[in-house]
Design a protein around this nucleic acid. Structure first.
Lengths: 107, 107
DNA sequence: ACAAGAGTTCGATGATTGTCTAACTGTTCT
DNA sequence: AGAACAGTTAGACAATCATCGAACTCTTGT
């Protein structure tokens, strides 16, 4: 389904920073991992996997959405969230590009 | 010089977390970027590029070394530090692998 | 031995942040 | 309408962290 070109190009510095900060908390990465591996991933479902309150889950999801790593939409009373793998890949690409040259003497 | 197999395989969770935290500070990423683009990169050289004290530079470098993203050795009174690009790549690989499946319905 | 320079270590401080409880909004079902 | 459930928001608190100045170690050159 072609993914849309969306985040394939470079990230804006602001988003780069938001992503890096979002990934800095191990719990949040675990959450991201759980979202990626689940089909439906409401707060309550996720909450049953982590020993944190639903307020904390909600907060983490908000941060992940703010960083662009996750897209979420209400489905009735539930929250449907999916991992934006393209954004994650854009981040890793940007990171490798920024810290790329220097080691290889070919440049 | 074949790089050694070093960090090609998966990172230990502990190091994964250290790296993520190390990359969370924009200044530290900028520092990492500067180290990657410079040949010699002592604290004083780096300090001239960022408006921070040498104590702060030293602290950031220590964190980068602790995370394994940079290797540093004293060369006389100077500090010689290089970016461990293999470790950075191991991090991005681990990240993509962890948050990998789930979006594609093929599994 | 002495001075100057490069980097480290030590507290201290202000800002950020992960977490909680409690109160709130919105949805679904009877 | 009312109860139960899903998620959000607000305020508070503790922990972490980036930063600094100052004192320290180690090296180099005189």
């Amino acid at each position: 389904m072609t993914t849309g070109r969306s985040a394939r190009e470079a990230l804006r510095p602001e988003q780069f920073e938001l992503i890096a900060k979002a990934l800095a908390d191990p719990r949040r990465v675990a959450l991201l991992e759980a979202i990626a591996s689940e089909k439906s991933c409401g707060c309550t479902t996720l909450r049953s996997k982590f020993p944190v309150s639903k307020a904390t889950i909600s907060h983490h999801i908000k941060e992940l959405v703010r960083a662009g790593l996750v897209s979420a939409q209400r489905q009735g009373q539930f929250l449907q969230c999916r991992v934006r793998r393209d954004v994650l890949e854009a981040y890793t690409s940007s990171l490798l590009r920024r810290v790329g040259s220097g080691t290889d003497p070919a440049s």
